[in-house]
Write a protein that binds this DNA or RNA. Structure first.
Length: 326
DNA sequence: AGTGGCTCCTGGCGGC
DNA sequence: TGCCGCCAGGAGCCAC
């Protein structure tokens, strides 16, 4: 599942091959990939050179310059549909990989059917492969980018200046939703998905069902650090290839090899040996160590344990946690 | 407003 | 052996 570290890995790889290339045509093989027609997408993107690559949360942004002289007027290609509105300035392509989206860069044809292909001149192509077909593509004028993200009410970038411990504490305040739901809510902080939420909560030693508002100042500080450390570790390992993530060069990430809790149900916690447990929170599989992430400090409504009054033994020794933090 | 639940989508897997 | 049904989850939408 592409989350912030996976999208950042894709961005870095594409940064090495796309800038300067002339996009000849966007070929749309699956119209559900965009609310815009092929003609509209081409009116915004074709005949332009890639000038940069950015990321906002889990969105990948490809900056395109003004239409290149040598490309002639952007014709819009063979796509059917109503005539595209003319657009002759620079533009931005926005891609969301959602669950299974892959951007594969290669000179020749793709190895599996692509939902869309960016054909570059002279001979290179970026193929968007996406088994579950949740991924999306948008083409915008640069001046519409702000409105695009405002409409989605995106929270701050974890690595941006706005995401401070103070911001996190205020964002947590008064919320009854479980911590897990809070972390994957893109309106609170952008870029965290199921894997990194579980891993960050483990690192912060916070139970996923704790009500967000029950988190104290010191715990919020721990969570802030855990979010940054977990995402940074994901980036350093070039993402997690649990289901289908590959980068544009077809390479897999390695973060899945050092997961502490995600999809490790029943396996011993790497710190204390207690079997990792799994619950469903907000309809999502959620993994945690019942000993390292005790429920003390309050619980989300309706999540009270029925397993009797056994308080989990003390958390793992600090030394173990230091080892985990390296 | 905040929160939870449903929906989309398809390959893979468990169970019978 | 084959088939059925369930599971995975990001984000948008809807209901309460």
């Amino acid at each position: 599942m592409p989350e912030l570290p996976e999208v950042e890995t894709v961005r870095r790889r594409l940064l090495a091959c796309l800038p300067g290339l002339l996009l000849r045509e966007v070929v749309v093989n699956d119209w559900t990939v965009s609310a815009q027609t092929g003609a509209e997408l081409n009116a915004y993107l074709a005949g332009r050179r890639v000038t940069g690559l950015r990321r906002r949360g889990k969105y990948l942004l490809v900056d395109m310059g003004r239409p290149a002289e040598e490309a002639g007027p952007a014709s819009g290609g063979p796509a059917a549909g109503r005539p595209a509105a003319a657009h002759d300035g620079p533009s931005v392509a926005v891609v969301h990989l959602r669950m299974t989206g892959q951007l594969v860069f290669r000179p020749g044809p793709g190895e599996r059917p692509a939902r869309f292909v960016w054909e570059f001149a002279p001979a290179a192509a970026l193929h968007f492969q996406d088994v579950r077909r949740f991924g999306r593509l948008w083409a915008l004028a640069p001046e519409d980018e702000t409105a695009f993200f405002e409409a989605r009410a995106m929270g701050p970038e974890p690595f941006g200046a706005e995401f401070t411990p103070g911001y996190l504490r205020r964002a947590l305040e008064g919320r009854r939703a479980p911590l897990k739901s809070f972390l994957v809510d893109q309106r609170r902080v952008a870029g965290i998905g199921n894997i990194y939420a579980d891993e960050a909560l483990f690192r912060a030693r916070l139970h996923p069902l704790r009500a967000a508002g029950s988190v104290g100042p010191r715990e919020a500080l721990r969570l802030h650090a855990a979010v940054l450390e977990t995402l940074q570790a994901g980036i350093d390992h070039e993402g997690s290839s649990i289901e289908s993530f590959i980068d544009p060069a077809g390479r897999r990430g390695s973060f899945q090899e050092i997961l502490n809790v995600y999809q490790r149900t029943g396996q011993p916690c790497r710190v204390c040996g207690t079997p990792v447990e799994r619950v469903v929170v907000g309809g999502r599989g959620t993994h945690y160590c019942p000993r390292c992430q005790p429920r003390r400090g309050g619980m989300a409504a309706g999540s009270r344990s029925r397993r009797g009054a056994v308080t989990p033994p003390r958390t793992a020794r600090p030394a173990d946690w230091e080892a985990l933090d390296r």
